[in-house]
Amino acid sequence: MSIGNSPPADDRPSVGRAIQQARIGAGLTVDEVSTTTRVRIPIVHAIEQDDFTRCGGAVYARGHIRTLARAVHVDANALVAQYDAEHGGGVTPTPAGPLFEAERIRPEPRRPNWTAAMVAAIVAVVGFVGFTLFSDADQGKDSTVAGESASAESTVKPTPVKPADPKPDPTESAIAGVPADKVTVKITAAKGASWISAKDVNGRLLHEGVLQRGASKTFTDSKRIDLVLGDAGAVQLFVNGKEVTKVGDAGQVERLSYTKGDPEAG
Rank of each mutant, 00 (worst) to 15 (best):
residue 184 T to Q: 06
residue 10 D to C: 06
residue 95 P to A: 11
residue 239 V to L: 10
residue 78 A to T: 15
residue 240 N to V: 12
residue 233 G to I: 07
residue 88 G to E: 01
residue 63 G to D: 09
residue 12 R to A: 12
residue 97 G to I: 13
residue 98 P to T: 04
residue 127 G to H: 10
residue 138 D to G: 12
residue 142 D to S: 08
residue 70 R to M: 13
residue 37 T to H: 05
residue 79 L to K: 03
residue 61 A to C: 07
residue 196 I to E: 03
residue 169 D to H: 14
residue 157 K to S: 00
residue 167 K to E: 14
residue 49 Q to T: 05
residue 264 E to V: 14
residue 218 T to G: 00
residue 48 E to L: 07
residue 157 K to T: 01
residue 139 Q to S: 13
residue 221 D to C: 04
residue 58 A to E: 10
residue 46 A to W: 02
residue 164 A to Q: 13
residue 86 E to L: 01
residue 129 V to D: 11
residue 148 E to S: 00
residue 187 I to S: 00
residue 41 I to T: 09
residue 232 A to P: 12
residue 4 G to C: 11
residue 42 P to T: 03
residue 212 Q to T: 12
residue 211 L to E: 03
residue 80 V to H: 06
residue 94 T to C: 08
residue 189 A to I: 02
residue 190 A to Y: 00
residue 178 V to H: 00
residue 28 L to Q: 12
residue 191 K to L: 10
residue 209 G to E: 03
residue 239 V to W: 09
residue 151 S to C: 00
residue 238 F to S: 09
residue 106 R to H: 09
residue 162 K to W: 14
residue 10 D to V: 08
residue 134 F to M: 12
residue 75 D to V: 04
residue 218 T to V: 04
residue 125 V to I: 14
residue 210 V to Q: 09
residue 237 L to Y: 04
residue 34 S to I: 08
residue 80 V to K: 07
residue 30 V to I: 15
residue 146 A to N: 00
residue 77 N to G: 08
residue 134 F to A: 15
residue 107 P to M: 10
residue 213 R to G: 08
residue 109 P to W: 11
residue 258 Y to G: 03
residue 200 D to T: 02
residue 244 V to Q: 06
residue 9 A to F: 15
residue 61 A to R: 07
residue 35 T to Q: 13
residue 144 T to L: 09
residue 228 V to H: 11
residue 31 D to H: 09
residue 141 K to Q: 04
residue 199 K to Y: 12
residue 1 M to C: 09
residue 263 P to W: 07
residue 223 K to L: 09
